[in-house]
């Protein structure tokens, strides 16, 4: 169809990726058990979050899975006012980055009132079930 000089495509494309996570299954198993897991290189001690199964520093290095404590502090945050189309049904959400006790940072939603948030406040990263899938979220520690 041509309207106002524009040809409207008759072909549509649905993009829905199929992403291999076999090697990081312990992370998702951990979420089911209420744990946030990272990987740690037994050779150099580097901790990886998001978890990855190879240590580029040591090449190869031997990795092990560790449970993160979850305790951390708020480094920055933003309330997303215009969300992507695929998040239209999520309601309003606030994204935060926290520095965890183990020295790694995580990015996740923070479940708190925006007016209560201050950089430097103590937060906790916890596993949670949402829409039949396991994910993780920051909470404010009062």
């Amino acid at each position: 169809m041509i309207k106002d000089g524009i040809f409207f495509d008759r072909r549509t494309l649905e993009l829905r990726y199929q992403m291999p996570v076999k090697n990081i299954e312990p992370f998702f198993k951990g979420l089911e058990e209420g744990k946030i897991r990272a990987t740690k290189c037994k050779t150099c001690g580097s901790i990886y979050f998001p978890p990855q199964i190879h240590c580029p520093r040591c090449n190869p290095g031997i990795m092990e899975w560790i449970d993160l404590d979850g305790d951390g502090k708020l480094e920055t945050f933003s309330s997303i006012e215009i969300a992507p189309t695929s998040f239209q049904n999520e309601g309003k959400y606030i994204v935060a980055i926290g520095l965890l006790k183990e020295g790694v940072r995580a990015l996740a939603w923070i479940d708190a009132k925006e007016s209560d948030l201050r950089i430097g406040k103590r937060i906790r990263l916890v596993a949670r079930k949402k829409d039949d899938a396991f994910t993780y979220v920051f909470n404010l520690v009062e």
Binding site: S78, A83, S86, V95, L107
Partner: peptide
């Protein structure tokens, strides 16, 4: 995978995280 899939970041949001800080 680790930012968009679960947390729906937008391009302004990435810079907003810097702006807040």
């Amino acid at each position: 995978f680790w930012e968009f899939e679960n947390f729906g970041l937008t391009f302004p949001a990435y810079y907003a995280l810097h702006a807040t800080r």
